[in-house]
Amino acid sequence: MRGLHYRPDKVESSLLPECWKPIALQPADGWCDDPRDSRYNRPVKLPFDPSHENLWREDDVYDLIVPLGYNDAPVVPGLGSAIFFHVARPGYEPTAGCVAVTRAHFLEILARTRPGDRMRIEAH
């Protein structure tokens, strides 16, 4: 778990554990998911021509984001990018490889973890 990013217009920073040193997202924040670009699987500023995720979304999914450290040390183009722990869509719609829970559960998990902790994902 690499760090915590949050939407300051939607999440009160006082709800977030100080140990995470929360980083406020800005409307120009994105994440490169173009394996042909040297910034693949890295944060970028928008506008950005190569393929990317917009981290400032209209829905609530990216109101709280923790990059999970997948494929980032080193980055291997095409192995996967933008793998986050984030807020689930209503009805727990599937993600594209991320881990998503309700906002309440996200905050509960955040309170029990620290930057650098590892998330273990098991299939049942």
Results as ranks from 00 to 15, higher is better:
Arg112Met: 11
Lys21Arg: 15
Val87Met: 05
Ala96Ser: 14
Glu108Tyr: 04
Leu16Tyr: 09
Ala24Pro: 15
Val101Phe: 14
Asp117His: 07
Met119Lys: 05
Ser14Leu: 10
Asp34Met: 05
Pro27Ser: 11
Leu79His: 08
Arg114Ser: 13
Ser81Asn: 03
Tyr6Met: 05
Tyr40Glu: 06
Gly80Pro: 11
Leu16His: 08
Arg114Val: 09
Asn71Arg: 00
His105Gly: 07
Pro43Leu: 10
Val87Ser: 04
Leu68Thr: 13
Tyr6His: 05
Ile121Thr: 11
Leu46Pro: 04
Ala82His: 02
Met119Tyr: 10
Glu108Val: 10
Arg39Leu: 14
Asp59Leu: 07
Leu15Met: 13
Leu64Asn: 02
Asp34Thr: 11
Pro27Phe: 10
Glu122Phe: 07
Met119Ser: 02
Arg120Cys: 12
Lys45Tyr: 10
Leu64Thr: 02
Asn54Met: 08
Asp34Lys: 03
Gly78Phe: 00
Val76Arg: 04
Pro77Ala: 00
Phe84Asn: 02
Met1Lys: 09
Asp37Met: 01
Ile65Cys: 02
Arg114Gln: 12
Pro50Met: 01
Gly3Ser: 09
Glu108Trp: 10
Gly91Thr: 09
Gly80Arg: 01
Arg118Val: 15
Gly30Trp: 03
Val75Ile: 13
Ala111Gly: 14
His5Met: 11
Asp60Cys: 11
Ala88Trp: 05
Ala24Cys: 15
Val99Arg: 00
Asp34Cys: 08
Glu58Ala: 15
